[in-house]
């Protein structure tokens, strides 16, 4: 649960949370109005495309303003400090997954599609490092174990159209092998690797404990 901390002292800003929130709303409203600048509002019998969003943006901006002003009048909560390291890594994992799952063009550069088999485990490891308690070997085991599970679940069982293998490899499968067969065999290999990593990890930690004791 959030610890409730009131703004202390007699500073002029009595509710920093509300001030920041209010200003954020004003910023969103301004952005929306700027995007709508070229559209017409029309009349009641022939409402244009801008009428409703513009009215909403103005309303949102006014509310933000009211909230920001109230921050000087009424006491409220402060904004808690946050460690940014964790969220940045989690967002990085999401971005990595998005741009590598299939070929992704950013301007003139095209990032090659790596498919689930690479995008998913790397994303798991990047995200997992977001917490200070992360243990690398454990994460590798998780990534190796969860990926074949996802491949079998989404690619094989549910048959969803998600790229499994790197785009450049698909042409080089041996003749007569279906993608499903390759999928199943790779999954089995990865699961075996998981067991190996897990067991060695366990042994290592036991031996660590042993040496400590």
């Amino acid at each position: 649960m959030n610890e409730i901390k009131n703004a202390t002292g007699r500073s002029t800003i009595r509710a920093p949370q509300n001030l920041a929130g209010g200003l954020a709303l004003v910023a969103v409203a301004a952005l929306a109005l700027w995007q709508l600048r070229d559209l017409t509002a029309g009349s009641l019998s022939e409402m244009g495309s801008a009428l409703m969003p513009r009215a909403l943006a103005v309303g949102l901006g006014l509310m933000g303003l009211a909230l920001a002003v109230s921050a000087f009048l009424r006491p409220g909560l402060i904004i808690e400090r946050t460690e940014l390291h964790g969220p940045v890594l989690v967002l990085l994992a999401i971005v990595f997954f998005a741009v590598t799952i299939r070929p992704f063009a950013i301007g003139p550069v095209t990032i090659p599609g790596l498919g689930l088999i690479i995008s998913a485990p790397v994303a798991i490891v990047i995200a997992g490092l977001a917490t200070p308690e992360a243990r690398f070997r454990e994460l590798v085991a998780l990534a190796l174990g969860l990926t074949p599970f996802c491949m079998l679940m989404f690619g094989d069982l549910l048959n969803l159209p998600i790229p499994i293998f790197p785009a450049s490899l698909i042409g080089s499968f041996p003749d007569g092998w279906s993608q499903k067969a390759v999928l199943r065999i790779t999954s089995a290999v990865m699961l075996a690797a998981t067991v190996v990593v897990f067991v060695t990890d366990r042994q290592k930690s036991i031996s660590d404990q042993g040496s400590e004791g």
Partner: peptide
């Protein structure tokens, strides 16, 4: 371990 899995 749960949150990287949820995320993926």
């Amino acid at each position: 371990l749960l949150f990287p899995a949820i995320l993926v």
